[in-house]
Design a protein around this nucleic acid. Structure first.
Lengths: 129, 129
DNA sequence: GACAAACGACTACGCATGTAATCCAATAGG
DNA sequence: CCTATTGGATTACATGCGTAGTCGTTTGTC
């Protein structure tokens, strides 16, 4: 496959990706409109980020007549996994479990989510027989 | 408290911190010597990173006679927590549990570690009654 | 059809980062 | 004692990133 490794995304770029992942294909103006309010970015800033994401091939667009519709070109799960691997590489020398423990500590989790995670741990355990 | 917010560490800086956390106070040359072999950094690069870490107040040094002994000035756990919070902010919009699931998936965990994490989830659950 | 509003393309600019090299003083070896 | 080495301090330089602004074209408005 001629699959080039997707470069990682900067924090600001992640914000834009989150909007695209959650609101589907959208015009630049709409992406701008849907940015979390606390990010007080200019429209131009969002445009720049979109262009950079297109350059990184993390975003594609369809030109419908005159207007452009931007959409994520990478899967959110895949991007998250890449990021997770990066975090693990960066922070961990020996064991990863203390790092995960920190995440559990810092996250706010519903009982259902806790159940779900427990299930995943069980699965992981069975996986190694 | 006049506690100034510690700025976050770059990936390269983390590498240096890991050595300091694991090998205690050390001279620059020893830090260099203990860098993971696959990081083929010049000694000067390590020196630069140490200086930047000192500037960031993440590292301090004692000057014993002529030689300098560098040591971590921030707690590894605290630094990790900050980083974890950053990752959560960056990647998460709604729930954090899918992110944690990715970590569980990507990590290699021993059965004991899985046990330990399960215990932490239990604790988290009891915490909310 | 002329003019303003929008939008995409290109440019800007300062700080962080990766990755060192140079400069200078102290030290150790001959 | 003079010299080569070594270490800290300072400087370098390309790239990435945050955060836009300018330019030129397309388009909708009267």
């Amino acid at each position: 496959m001629t699959k080039s490794e997707s470069p990682s995304l900067s924090p600001a770029e992640w914000e834009v990706m989150k909007v695209l992942w959650e609101s589907g294909p959208a015009a630049a103006r709409d992406v701008f409109a849907q940015m979390p309010a606390e990010k007080k970015w200019a429209y131009k800033t969002v445009k720049t980020l979109l262009s950079r994401l297109v350059a990184k091939e993390a975003v594609e667009y369809d030109q419908i007549g005159n207007s452009y519709l931007y959409r994520a070109a990478v899967d959110r799960d895949a991007a998250t996994r890449r990021e997770v691997r990066g975090v693990i590489e960066r922070l961990v020398t020996e064991a990863t479990s203390p790092l995960i423990a920190h995440f559990i500590e810092e996250a706010s989790l519903s009982e259902d989510e806790i159940q779900e995670l427990r299930r995943r741990l069980d699965q992981k355990e069975r996986g190694k027989g």
